[in-house]
């Protein structure tokens, strides 16, 4: 069982900044996120897009903001459960919360901070008849451990940044990478498109355009995929140990709906004074919460996380008085 002071659900910008603010008052954090990497939608959807409204940064790339937040949180040594979705919650006898993920990892903490944005990202699945039969048997929607693909035959589907980025990365890991795309051109970042074209030209990867994976074959584990070309209607079979469809991820509130929290249209209603929910010990910060005047902005989420941590401290230590310290005076004391 993983034990911590504040269990943060969601490792996006607000979740990461919670670690820093909690660290200043000597509270430890552990973060759970359905995605295999921290950063939330900044890392998953728009890492190479600029953000202009972070105070003190006239412009910063979303991916760079995530790196900075990770660096800022680092002195406080946060723990991470990545690639797993917070699923089940129960109150323990000692008053702490116990949260179990979809993969069975158990966490315990006196305080939960839900910083889950629009919910946990679920993969958009292509319509292939027996797709579900091969999940965890060759079909992967998120890449947690690239080493798994070493010396394997990998087929990736999709035309956006994650399809391109993983094709580039796995080109050096897998035995063979084939990128299958429904269109003739890619919509990803220009640098990535160039890199993929270059890799194809030198024979390091194969690109199959105007085509789609339409069938999966194998007795137990995946052995090959069927690829259909839209123009010629040609059907080919390609040996494959892994098929990775990367058609984007869409957030779903999912299991949080069953946590008995007061909801208003997919958002968790909180008291704006400290972002507390209707359940003592559970807070919600960032895009997932709602209160009169709520603005879904990263900078507002940072403020909410700061207020929330002060309240969480008092919840955990009802007999102690917290005195606000300035980092300029006290510095950042790592633990």
């Amino acid at each position: 069982m993983i034990e911590t002071d504040i269990l943060v659900i969601g490792a996006g910008p607000c979740g990461l900044f919670t670690v820093f603010e909690a660290g200043l008052v000597k509270l430890r954090c552990h973060l759970i996120d359905a995605l295999p990497q921290p950063g939330g939608q900044l890392a998953e959807i728009y890492p190479k897009k600029p953000i202009y409204d972070i105070p003190g940064f006239p412009m910063i790339m979303a991916g760079e903001l995530v790196s900075n937040l990770m660096k800022q949180a680092e002195p406080f040594n946060p723990g991470f459960t990545l690639g797993e979705r917070a699923e089940h919650i129960e109150k323990m006898e000692d008053g702490r919360w116990k949260v179990t993920t979809n993969r069975g990892t158990v966490h315990a903490a006196p305080v939960i901070a839900i910083a889950a944005g629009l919910g946990s990202f679920e993969p958009r699945k292509p319509e292939i008849p027996n797709l579900l039969n091969f999940e965890d048997k060759g079909v992967e929607y998120i890449i947690k451990d690239p080493e798994k693909f070493r010396d394997k035959n990998v087929v990736i589907s999709g035309g956006g940044d994650s399809a391109l980025d993983w094709t580039i990365f796995l080109a050096d890991v897998a035995k063979r990478v084939t990128l299958v795309h429904r269109r003739s051109s890619f919509r990803g970042h220009l640098d990535s498109v160039h890199k993929v074209t270059e890799l194809a030209a030198t024979g390091k990867i194969n690109i199959v355009t105007n085509s789609e994976v339409t069938g999966l074959n194998g007795s137990d584990n995946l052995e090959s995929v069927t690829i259909t070309n839209f123009d010629t209607e040609d059907i080919t079979n390609l040996e494959a140990d892994y098929f990775i469809p990367l058609f984007g991820l869409s957030p779903k509130l999912g299991p949080l709906k069953n946590w008995d929290l007061n909801l208003h249209k997919e958002s968790i209603t909180v008291n704006p004074i400290d972002c507390s929910t209707n359940i003592p010990g559970i807070y919600a910060v960032g895009d997932i919460n709602d209160y009169p005047g709520k603005l879904r902005l990263i900078l507002c989420g940072f403020h909410e996380a700061t207020m929330m941590v002060q309240s969480a401290y008092k919840y955990i230590n009802p007999d102690k008085n917290l005195v606000l310290k300035y980092t300029t005076v006290s510095g950042v004391k790592a633990f």
Binding site: R124, R182, R187, F247
Partner: peptide
């Protein structure tokens, strides 16, 4: 735009 069309296509 090309971006919009490609995104719609990628999302089936």
């Amino acid at each position: 735009s090309e971006d919009e069309e490609a995104m719609l296509d990628d999302a089936f």
